[in-house]
């Protein structure tokens, strides 16, 4: 590969950008200097840390280590989702985490084992970045679907109760709401299929091109990634929406959501 390595001296040169921003912040009294400072420090330390961790994981090339790291990523994704959804009355964290785990594992394994045909399928250099994209993208989809379903059940309480009073079960009483929540989760990844290559060049593809990979090879990877993300956001939104919907009712078809 013909990629030019960046020396530490060259890396420090890129600080020029944050210095400009820092000066602008002082002169315009934006009061952002502290954030810029800490943001820069964190960018350096966090990325160096993950760089060395990945280097270590790639070197060891061990199935259990890869699964451990992937599980950790999914756990933090589920945790982030919980922070965003802020629903207190329904215990959805564990089921959400488990269904995220099952669906992301499935999608990532299909991509590495069958589409890209990596040997072995868990080769960390492929599994971790591809899995990471799956987790990062569908995490947002799952948060949207969950927020939507809880908000709509709460807002549509009277109508849901009417359905229940007339002899509907929870599926019949919430079919519209569940559908809308799943769609809300899926739409962003479908929309990005429309815009890719014209409105934006995806980071993964540009990264590969910078690393000296043939553009045709890199767009093939990007196509796999786009379709993989549509699949994982769809599976994630559907599974989580149904689980969350079921958790909002008890056996006697009473609404539990407060």
């Amino acid at each position: 590969m013909s990629v030019i390595d960046i020396t530490y001296g060259q890396l420090l040169m890129s600080l020029i950008f944050v210095i400009i921003v820092g000066i602008a912040s002082v002169r315009l009294q934006l009061d952002l200097e502290r954030d810029i400072f800490w943001g820069t420090i964190r960018t350096f330390t966090q990325l160096f840390m993950i760089g060395y961790i990945l280097k270590y994981i790639f070197a060891i090339d061990n199935l259990y280590l890869v699964l451990f790291v992937f599980t950790g990523m999914i756990f933090f994704a589920a945790y982030t989702v919980r922070g965003r959804v802020k629903e207190k009355s329904i215990p959805y964290f564990v089921p959400t985490f488990l269904s995220m785990f099952a669906s992301y594992m499935f999608v990532t394994i299909v991509v590495t084992a069958f589409v890209v045909q990596v040997e072995p399928w868990y080769k960390p250099q492929y599994f971790i970045p591809l899995g990471g994209m799956v987790v990062g993208n569908s995490m947002t989809a799952i948060a949207i679907a969950l927020e939507r379903i809880f908000a709509d059940i709460r807002r549509g309480r009277d109508e849901i109760e009417l359905y229940l009073c007339l002899g509907a079960n929870r599926r019949e009483a919430t079919s519209k709401i569940t559908k809308e929540a799943i769609k809300a989760g899926m739409i962003p990844s479908i929309n990005s299929m429309m815009a890719v290559g014209i409105v934006f060049l995806p980071g993964m593809m540009t990264g590969q091109i910078l690393a000296g990979v043939d553009p045709i090879t890199s767009i093939k990877y990007q196509i796999v990634v786009m379709l993989m993300l549509v699949g994982s956001t769809a599976i994630g939104s559907i599974v989580v929406a149904f689980i969350a919907r079921n958790l909002c009712f008890n056996k006697a078809e009473q609404i539990l959501l407060k």
Binding site: D158, E161, L164, C165, L166, G167, E253
Partner: peptide, 14 residues
């Protein structure tokens, strides 16, 4: 419960 609610029918205030 669905059968029960059909037999004992509740009509809302609004």
């Amino acid at each position: 419960v669905a059968e029960l609610r059909r037999q004992i029918c509740y009509i809302h205030q609004t």
